[in-house]
Amino acid sequence: MTINEERVLKHTLQSVAPFAQVFVVDSHSTDRTLQIAEAHEAEVVQFTWNGGYPKKKEWALLNLPFKYEWVLYLDADEMVTPKLAVQLAELMRTDPEHAAYDVELDYWFLGKMLRHGHRVTKRVLLDRTRAVWPHVDDLGVKNMWEVEGHYQPLIDGSIGRLTGTLHHNDRDPLFDYFARHNRYSDWEAHLAEREPLAKSVQGARTERGKRYARLPLKPLAFFFYSYIARRGFLDGRAGFHYAVAHAFYFWQISAKRLELRRNTKAVVDVRSGTSKSVQSPSEQQTL
Rank of each mutant, 00 (worst) to 15 (best):
L114W: 06
Q202K: 12
E259V: 08
T163M: 10
D186T: 04
H11P: 05
F224I: 14
Q285T: 13
D269S: 11
K142I: 10
L72T: 09
W70T: 04
F178H: 07
A42H: 04
R123M: 07
A255C: 04
F240I: 05
Y107T: 15
L174N: 13
D137Y: 05
A221P: 05
F223V: 08
V24F: 00
L125F: 11
Q14A: 14
S200R: 15
M144H: 04
V16K: 08
V25E: 04
R32I: 01
G239Y: 01
Y212T: 14
G52L: 01
P18C: 09
P96N: 02
Y73E: 07
L197K: 10
L64K: 00
F224R: 12
G52V: 06
H135L: 06
R211I: 02
T94G: 06
R93Q: 14
N4R: 09
H241P: 01
W145Y: 13
R171Y: 14
Q152H: 09
K210S: 00
S27Q: 15
Q35D: 15
L174M: 15
L125P: 06
T33C: 03
G236W: 04
T2W: 06
D156G: 15
S29W: 14
K142S: 14
N263F: 07
K276T: 14
K67E: 08
Y227I: 00
T165S: 15
A39I: 04
A76G: 13
P96A: 00
L105W: 15
S272P: 07
K56N: 10
A131S: 15
T12L: 03
P173Q: 03
K56H: 05
Y53R: 06
Q14F: 07
I155R: 08
V124T: 06
G232S: 02
R261C: 11
K83C: 14
L110I: 12
P196K: 11
K112L: 11
R211E: 06
P219E: 00
I253D: 09
V71H: 04
R211D: 04
T94H: 02
R161Y: 08
T274C: 11
I36G: 01
R180A: 12
W145T: 08
L258K: 09
R128Q: 11
W133A: 00
Q87T: 09
P96D: 05
R180H: 09
E193D: 11
Y227A: 03
H11A: 15
M113H: 06
D138W: 07
I159L: 03
H40I: 13
